[in-house]
Amino acid sequence: MKKFYFLFFIVLLTTAVISGCSEKSSQATAGSDQNSEEQQTLKATISAPKSPAIFPSILLAEQQKDIELITWETADTLLAQIQKKQAQFIALPLNMGANLYAKGMPLQLIQVNTFGSMFLVSTDDKVQKLEDLAHQTIFVPSQGGPPDILTNYLIAQNNIPGVKLSFVNLTEIGQQLASGAIQHVVIPEPLLSIVQANLQTDLHIAINFEEVWQKQFSKQLPQTGIFVNKAWASSNQHAIKQFQALSEQAITDLYQQPDVSLPLLSDFFKSNEKIIESALTNSSLHFQTAQQARNETEAYFKILLEIAPDSIGGALPNEDFYYNE
Score class of each variant (00 low, 15 high):
A197V: 03
A197F: 11
N198P: 05
Q200F: 14
T201M: 08
D202H: 14
D202W: 07
D202M: 11
L203M: 05
H204K: 15
I205D: 03
A206S: 06
N208C: 04
N208W: 00
N208S: 06
N208Q: 04
N208F: 03
E210Q: 10
E210N: 05
E210T: 01
V212F: 09
W213Y: 12
K215Y: 08
Q216G: 10
Q216P: 07
S218E: 08
K219P: 11
Q220H: 13
Q220E: 14
Q220M: 12
L221P: 09
P222E: 06
P222Y: 07
Q223C: 10
Q223Y: 14
I226D: 02
I226W: 07
F227N: 05
F227A: 07
F227Q: 03
V228M: 01
N229W: 08
N229C: 10
N229S: 15
A233P: 00
S234L: 10
S235N: 11
S235C: 02
Q237P: 00
Q237V: 02
H238Y: 14
H238E: 15
H238Q: 15
A239Y: 06
A239M: 08
K241A: 11
Q242I: 03
Q242M: 10
Q242S: 10
F243K: 04
Q244M: 12
Q244S: 15
Q244F: 08
L246T: 02
L246P: 02
A250T: 05
A250R: 04
I251N: 00
I251R: 01
D253L: 10
L254A: 00
L254E: 00
Y255S: 13
Q256R: 14
Q256P: 10
Q257I: 13
Q257S: 15
P258I: 14
D259F: 07
D259L: 12
V260Q: 11
V260H: 08
V260I: 11
S261T: 03
L262M: 14
L262A: 13
L264N: 02
S266P: 06
D267F: 12
F268N: 09
F268A: 08
F268M: 08
F269M: 06
K270R: 05
K270M: 09
S271K: 03
S271N: 09
S271E: 13
N272M: 11
N272A: 11
E273L: 09
E273A: 10
K274E: 08
I275R: 05
I275T: 10
E277V: 01
E277K: 12
S278M: 03
S278C: 05
S278D: 08
S278E: 07
S278V: 00
A279V: 10
L280A: 00
N282G: 07
N282I: 05
S283I: 12
L285S: 08
L285P: 09
L285F: 15
L285R: 09
H286T: 14
F287I: 06
F287P: 04
Q288A: 03
T289K: 13
T289Q: 11
A290H: 01
A290M: 01
Q291Y: 02
Q291A: 09
A293I: 02
A293P: 00
A293F: 04
A293W: 03
